[in-house]
């Protein structure tokens, strides 16, 4: 039983202006991501004295265990973006939600945007943190800009306040299988207003990207490597969709071509992830690679300078480590 039922029982009219409760919309996302949203919604609901609703197709008992008071199960035909918008908009027109959380997937962002427009609310996409001001009943959302260089903190001056939240923004919630909650199916409107048609697989080859612009680079150097482990490095690169490269020593050993040398005396790179196995990481190399947003270094010598500019470090010989890494990926 939630507030709507209580009010109905007591003969009260729900005020048109009365936006209430926290709503988590799952659509077709893995439970782990949804669970963290439910956990956070639960925490905020307790501060506000509000209820947590979950709308989705997933396991309703799980949703309740992670903090939902009420689960509205969504029919499978309502999972496509267009249909979800129609269904949710119809539903929310009477149940005015105060805060709505979506997982920040492309579908989540699309549905959240459409819904905000339909309900004349506000939306912030791709949030990595939410801060509740319970007295002002508003949430300030941090969302990355400039590819995550920094975050903008944004609040919304309209209701409902809708947020799409990135995976990992909140800690994993406690699962309480003893929690109680209610489940009810959610009606899909007669006209789902589906306009987008899926045509199946398409013939599309992404344009070739040069090492200079690669998003992921896996590079080898001589330290603790041999030609065999360098070849394994190449396999790892292929497997993780990275460009294979190396430092000058790898070129001297014949493991890479001249146009695969990373460094100020070779190709300068700025990938999202740079993985260096057996690379010492002196100035020449560093100056060509430190534009990388995240650096993973494997080197047998713990004094290697690369460890001073790598985010994740492993002291070890690549020829021991790389075969195991390949198996783990």
């Amino acid at each position: 039983m939630d507030v709507y039922d209580l009010q109905a029982l007591m003969g009260e009219n729900i005020e048109a202006e009365d936006y209430r409760d926290l709503w988590v919309v799952g659509l077709a996302v893995e439970m782990q991501h949804v669970a963290s949203l439910l956990g956070e919604a639960r925490r905020m609901a307790d501060m506000l004295g509000a209820y947590v609703h979950y709308i989705g197709a997933g396991d309703s008992d799980e949703a309740i265990a992670f903090g939902a008071d009420r689960v509205h199960t969504l029919a499978a035909e309502s999972l496509a973006p267009d249909a979800a918008v129609s269904t949710l908009a119809t539903f929310f027109e009477t149940r005015k939600p105060e805060f709505v959380f979506f997982p920040a997937t492309d579908i989540g962002n699309e549905v959240a945007g459409c819904l905000a427009q339909r309900l004349k609310g506000g939306v912030v996409c791709n949030c990595i943190a939410l801060r509740l001001d319970e007295s002002a009943r508003e949430i300030v959302a941090s969302h990355p800009v400039y590819d995550g260089a920094y975050y903008l903190d944004t609040a919304l001056a309209a209701k409902p306040q809708i947020f799409t939240v990135r995976e990992g923004a909140f800690p994993a919630p406690l699962r309480d299988s003893g929690r109680n909650g209610e489940t009810e199916p959610m009606d899909s409107p007669a006209d789902l207003a589906i306009r987008a048609r899926a045509l199946g697989e398409a013939d599309y080859t992404p344009p070739a990207v040069s090492l200079r612009k690669a998003a992921r680079v896996f590079a080898v150097g001589r330290a603790g490597n041999d030609s065999e482990s360098a070849a394994i490095g190449k396999q790892i690169a292929e497997k993780i969709g990275a460009h294979f490269a190396g430092d000058r020593s790898a070129f001297d050993s014949g493991w890479i071509e001249e146009d695969q040398i990373v460094g100020v005396n070779g190709i300068e790179i700025a990938p999202d992830v740079y993985i260096a196995a057996g690379i010492w990481g002196d100035t020449l190399h560093r100056a060509g690679a430190e534009g990388a947003k995240f650096v993973i270094a494997i080197h047998p010598d713990k004094r290697a300078p690369i460890f001073s500019w790598a985010d994740t470090c492993l002291v070890g010989k690549p020829k021991d480590v790389l075969p195991k890494l390949l198996a783990l990926l």
Binding site: V140, G148, Y150, Y151, L152, D153, T154, A158, C313
Partner: peptide, 17 residues
């Protein structure tokens, strides 16, 4: 509708972990 309340920043990169 969107009201900017400032900026925040990712934690500083920690090297050598």
């Amino acid at each position: 509708v969107a009201i900017e309340r400032g900026q925040s920043f990712p934690p500083e990169r920690e090297f050598g972990k």
